[in-house]
Measured scan of single mutants.
Amino acid sequence: MQRVNMIMAESPGLITICLLGYLLSAECTVFLDHENANKILNRPKRYNSGKLEEFVQGNLERECMEEKCSFEEAREVFENTERTTEFWKQYVDGDQCESNPCLNGGSCKDDINSYECWCPFGFEGKNCELDVTCNIKNGRCEQFCKNSADNKVVCSCTEGYRLAENQKSCEPAVPFPCGRVSVSQTSKLTRAETVFPDVDYVNSTEAETILDNITQSTQSFNDFTRVVGGEDAKPGQFPWQVVLNGKVDAFCGGSIVNEKWIVTAAHCVETGVKITVVAGEHNIEETEHTEQKRNVIRIIPHHNYNAAINKYNHDIALLELDEPLVLNSYVTPICIADKEYTNIFLKFGSGYVSGWGRVFHKGRSALVLQYLRVPLVDRATCLRSTKFTIYNNMFCAGFHEGGRDSCQGDSGGPHVTEVEGTSFLTGIISWGEECAMKGKYGIYTKVSRYVNWIKEKTKLT
């Protein structure tokens, strides 16, 4: 034993070699072989497995989906700052455009905790909710729209109204504003409101030439003092309507412009014939205590009207009353817009006519005020429907199939267009061939041609 100890002390290297040989010859039971080890760690190889990531292109799944990435790591994937920024906006807080917040056709661009709407022409605001041009839906104005110097929408209202708090709607500024039905039992019968379409306001006024200088022999019209197929109006439903009495009662109609003036057809009036105007009328054979009678003290036909040349060209006249009318729910003026808007309103496509005229061709006159909704007829169809001249200051309205029309005794009465609950004068009943005849239409004086003249002559002093 002493000898062994001496050998170990003198030859430590020998001992180490012996131990190493023993270990190498022993069977290893701690580690699995290569094949079995792979069965336990069965993990798919990654895209760049075996390579240094710093030297390969980034992978979106590896960089940002398996674990949260930084902007720089995302930049490695896209290799483009702009594309990385677009991805980053949604990656950080989701897609803010998912709810489609942009209105009126706006395009949404996502941002971090926010979004941006790219608005089409005519709109602005956070969600493109603000109209900035009158060309689109009248700028959301209830009545009139004008573009300011910086191309912003400025709404306005006709006389007797003021802008509401929203700067879009119009509200009454006087007790009985024009064009409004205020009798409670008839307010439910107000005709369907007309909503502004998209309009090209630059070209809204037709490029028409008034044929002022045409000389033409007097034409022989049949029954051209021209509501057939209409309905009984309720008291106060058309408070701007008046009836004219002269040699015979209810020979023509008219509309209240203001307390002192009536507008009617020029062919209705004769110099030297006494005319009485009755406002607030409903049943011409009954006294309903809503009527107001006034005498006409002055007749002003349009300066281009000449019955000797043509009885229905420039067929418009103004009547001055001896005493002002007292405005109330049964006696209310009709609204008159400017030339541009009167023309736009007419193009809405349908209007209402009213009167006490004959209820059928050569038949009896109506006792109760009649009204009828009539569609506008395109000019080409209008011209083809008659052998008589249709001037540019006239328009056609009615039904091709016949059966409904204005008729004798309705002449001078109103053709009105309702705009968001307020009625505007767009025409004056003038003439036609018979009444409600198939293929024939009622012919009306186009008020847009005469609004400046009306307003100039009827100013209240």
Results as ranks from 00 to 15, higher is better:
302 H>A: 03
375 P>Y: 11
27 E>V: 04
280 G>N: 02
198 D>Q: 14
366 A>E: 15
130 L>A: 08
119 C>V: 01
349 G>M: 04
3 R>T: 07
421 G>P: 02
366 A>Q: 13
179 G>D: 01
346 L>H: 04
356 W>G: 03
187 S>E: 08
430 S>F: 03
122 G>D: 03
215 T>W: 05
234 K>E: 14
323 E>D: 09
377 V>S: 03
315 D>V: 01
307 A>W: 07
166 N>R: 02
51 K>T: 13
222 N>V: 06
174 V>P: 01
60 L>V: 15
114 S>N: 08
263 V>N: 01
12 P>M: 15
215 T>A: 09
254 G>N: 00
290 T>N: 12
90 Q>N: 15
366 A>L: 09
414 P>S: 07
40 I>Q: 15
29 T>M: 14
80 N>Q: 10
208 E>A: 10
329 S>D: 14
142 E>V: 05
408 Q>H: 15
428 I>L: 10
422 T>D: 01
94 G>S: 11
420 E>S: 14
2 Q>G: 14
316 I>H: 01
130 L>C: 04
440 K>P: 07
196 F>H: 15
91 Y>D: 07
237 Q>R: 05
268 C>W: 01
168 K>W: 10
307 A>I: 08
22 Y>S: 10
230 G>R: 09
165 E>H: 12
199 V>L: 07
180 R>F: 04
284 I>N: 07
60 L>A: 14
45 K>Q: 13
358 R>P: 08
305 Y>W: 11
320 E>N: 02
135 N>D: 14
131 D>I: 05
100 N>H: 11
233 A>D: 05
105 G>C: 01
317 A>Y: 00
140 R>H: 09
412 G>H: 04
182 S>A: 11
99 S>A: 11
229 G>E: 14
137 K>I: 05
264 T>L: 02
175 P>E: 14
71 F>K: 08
5 N>P: 10
265 A>M: 02
451 V>E: 03
418 E>S: 11
135 N>F: 09
159 E>C: 03
198 D>Y: 07
12 P>W: 06
446 K>D: 07
416 V>P: 01
338 D>F: 03
355 G>E: 04
11 S>F: 15
105 G>L: 03
108 C>H: 00
305 Y>V: 02
300 I>C: 04
252 C>F: 01
250 A>F: 08
277 V>P: 01
178 C>Q: 02
298 R>V: 03
39 K>H: 10
115 Y>Q: 02
196 F>K: 13
211 L>W: 12
148 S>D: 09
148 S>A: 08
86 E>V: 15
415 H>Q: 01
308 A>I: 07
431 W>L: 08
261 W>K: 01
259 E>W: 03
431 W>P: 06
